[in-house]
């Protein structure tokens, strides 16, 4: 059915990812496929890490912990963007193309009127990506 799952993660808010990661783990086992965890970071020191290198290590550790929990194949991918707040969506679309994944599983919030002005990242990805997108509400 699917070849590879992509799960965008923001390590600054790892607590909000639990449900999406559970779903991704279950699906990966069901179809016997791997999961790529992708994060977007700025080149400057940030909340999660002082450098993209350090961020990458944390992302690898996060992926390894997921692999242990669900027993699926994992890989990780860090996208560096000079303006992550505004360019997250483009970075995710690029990550999707580069990773060859065909299913995105992504945490998203409950939409309201404000999404007309600032669309959610999941919503943007669903309208721009060729892959299937599964948005997991909290």
């Amino acid at each position: 059915m699917f070849k590879q799952i992509l799960v965008p993660v923001d390590l600054a808010h790892a607590g909000r990812l639990t449900r999406a990661c559970e779903v991704a783990g279950d699906l990966a086992r069901h179809y016997g496929i791997g999961v790529t965890y992708v994060a977007v970071a700025a080149p400057q020191p940030g909340e999660v890490a002082q450098s993209p290198e350090a961020y990458r290590e944390k992302l690898d550790a996060f992926a390894a912990a997921e692999a242990e929990r669900h027993g699926h194949r994992v890989s990780s991918r860090l996208m560096v963007s000079p303006d992550p707040a505004a360019e997250l969506d483009e970075a995710l679309v690029r990550a999707l193309e580069e990773s060859g994944a065909d299913l995105v599983v992504m945490a998203s919030h409950v939409p309201g009127w404000v999404e007309h002005v600032f669309p959610s990242h999941g919503g943007r990805l669903a309208s721009h990506a060729k892959a299937s997108v599964l948005l997991v509400r909290p």
Partner: peptide, 18 residues
């Protein structure tokens, strides 16, 4: 298993001090 391919994919990354 985690791979390190991400290293090559960052076009603008600023690594830790060298």
């Amino acid at each position: 298993m985690t791979d390190q391919t991400s290293q090559d994919l960052t076009d603008q990354g600023i690594p830790a001090p060298e």
